[in-house]
């Protein structure tokens, strides 16, 4: 069953095509990796999927619902984790999670309080639950944003660069949680620059370059398309840059 469908999705900023008619389908219970060089259109696509940006053209269907027609209904079951954790610094973690729960109309009560505590414990923030967020480190804020995305028990999770700012322990925790969610049928659409993470976690991967999908398949399919037996990094470089090592270009004039 297709949980995410991007059909001819386009975004134009003042004449510049950031996303150029992309088509993608993601099935239920899949962790989908979305890779691409800087400025390729990853974050723009993700923001459109989260309902933060309005597409210039095309359609986004989540669980069969058109986000343009029923934005509130779609957002009700989509969790979003942005690349930078901007949150209200003068709230405590507990207050912030309650605020988000209210926005998603989650019923107040003991069950919700327990859910909040469980998530804070899971992300190792329980000891900081009643401290103002302004005193948190970047990684702690990132973990709190993840709590807020999971508190509503979403069917689809849209994630932009989840590992930025996390320490190895935090990164391992996130990987474990994502695996667990996928096993429970949650669909995760994740952009990342970490090819090792993509290779380790993602069932399917798409590569976007200059706003267009240039490759889509499993990690093995991408390697085969790039014509390499090496790792995903090698395949990615071959598909996006023709495989030339950046070092060669940098050092060539120096050696001459």
């Amino acid at each position: 069953m297709a949980m995410i469908e991007l059909i001819g999705l386009t975004k134009i900023y003042k004449g510049f095509k950031a996303v150029d008619g992309i088509n993608l389908t993601v099935e239920r219970g899949v962790l989908f990796g979305f890779l691409g060089p800087n400025g390729a259109g990853k974050t723009t696509t993700i923001k459109m999927m989260a309902g933060v940006l309005k597409p210039t053209g095309g359609m986004i269907r989540m669980n069969g619902l058109d986000i343009a027609r029923e934005p509130e209904a779609v957002k009700q079951f989509v969790g979003f984790i942005p690349d930078r954790p901007f949150i209200h610094e003068k709230l405590t973690a507990r207050e912030f999670l309650n605020f988000v729960a209210d926005l998603y109309r989650m019923e107040r009560g003991r069950a919700r309080d327990e859910q909040i505590l469980r998530l804070l414990e899971l992300f190792e923030l329980a000891g900081w639950a009643d401290e103002l967020i302004e005193s948190y480190s970047h990684g702690m804020k990132q973990r709190l944003v993840m709590c807020s995305a999971l508190i509503t028990e979403p069917k689809i999770l849209v994630v932009d660069e989840p590992m930025v700012g996390l320490d190895p322990r935090g990164a391992r925790l996130v990987k474990t949680i994502f695996r667990g969610l996928v096993e429970r049928g949650v669909t995760i659409f994740m952009s990342t620059h970490s090819l090792a993470v993509a290779e380790e976690l993602c069932g399917r991967i798409a590569i976007i370059q200059s706003g267009r999908i240039i490759s889509n398949g499993t990690s093995a399919e991408l390697r085969s398309k790039a014509g390499t037996d090496g790792n995903l990094e090698k395949a990615f470089l071959l598909l996006t840059e023709g495989g030339e090592e950046p070092n060669e270009r940098f050092f060539a004039p120096l050696q001459a």
Binding site: V52, F86, L103, Y104
Partner: peptide, 11 residues
Amino acid sequence: GEAYWIIKSSP
């Protein structure tokens, strides 16, 4: 502020 994404991505 920059936390407006929370409102924008909520229902």
